[in-house]
Computed example of a mutant assay.
Amino acid sequence: MLVTPQVATPADYAELAAIWTRSVQATHHFLAPADRDDIQRHLPEYFDQVDLYKWQVAGQTVGFSGTAGTELVMLFLDPPYFRHGYGQAIFHALMRKPGIQTVSVNEQNPGALAFYQRQGFQIVSRAAVDEAGRPYPILNLERQA
């Protein structure tokens, strides 16, 4: 499966935010609507803080990723592309870059946790709240050699 990356620019933010919204609605049922809306409002700021890529198949954007140093900060797929190998293809392409060693996931998102554990990550710590102090526990994972 050929999934190709393109550096995302601010012109792509609306498309990526729409993918984020659909993905979160499908997987983050635990988020209160007000919290989801607040996060969505801040997406452009978050996008500006990472090396942001949109991932395409035959010209269609299927998802996006953001990395910062050795951390995979975000990886979201549009729901029609769930469970078809696109996430794994993107992940393996990202791993060809040196250094992705850590990722954090919401504890209430067992699908994401299982995905990263299948990729060789293990839980190394837990935070009771997310980075904004909201009541969504975060699991910090590291890739095991």
Rank of each mutant, 00 (worst) to 15 (best):
T4M: 13
T9F: 00
P10N: 01
P10M: 01
A11Y: 00
D12F: 06
D12G: 07
D12R: 07
D12Y: 05
A14S: 04
E15I: 08
E15P: 03
L16R: 07
A17V: 08
A17L: 09
W20S: 01
T21V: 03
T21P: 02
R22E: 06
R22C: 02
S23C: 01
V24R: 06
V24T: 13
V24H: 06
Q25H: 12
Q25V: 09
Q25T: 09
A26M: 10
T27W: 09
H29L: 12
P33D: 07
D35S: 01
R36E: 04
D37M: 06
D38R: 13
Q40T: 15
E45H: 12
F47P: 04
D48I: 06
Q49F: 07
Q49A: 15
Q49D: 15
D51V: 11
D51Y: 07
Q56W: 11
Q56V: 14
Q56A: 15
V57E: 12
V57Q: 14
Q60T: 15
T61A: 05
F64M: 03
F64P: 00
G66L: 06
G69M: 02
T70H: 15
E71T: 11
L72M: 14
M74V: 10
F76A: 01
D78R: 05
P79I: 02
Y81C: 03
R83D: 12
R83V: 06
H84N: 09
Q88D: 14
Q88I: 14
A89R: 07
F91W: 07
R96P: 02
G99M: 05
I100Y: 02
Q101I: 10
Q101R: 14
V103R: 06
Q108L: 10
N109G: 14
N109Y: 12
A114D: 10
A114Q: 12
A114I: 05
A114W: 07
Q117P: 10
R118Y: 10
R118D: 13
Q119H: 05
G120S: 04
F121D: 13
F121Y: 12
Q122D: 11
I123Q: 14
V124Y: 09
A128S: 10
A128C: 00
D130Y: 05
D130S: 08
E131A: 13
A132W: 09
P135S: 05
Y136I: 09
I138K: 10
L139G: 09
L141T: 03
R143D: 03
Q144I: 15
A145V: 13
A145F: 13
A145Q: 15
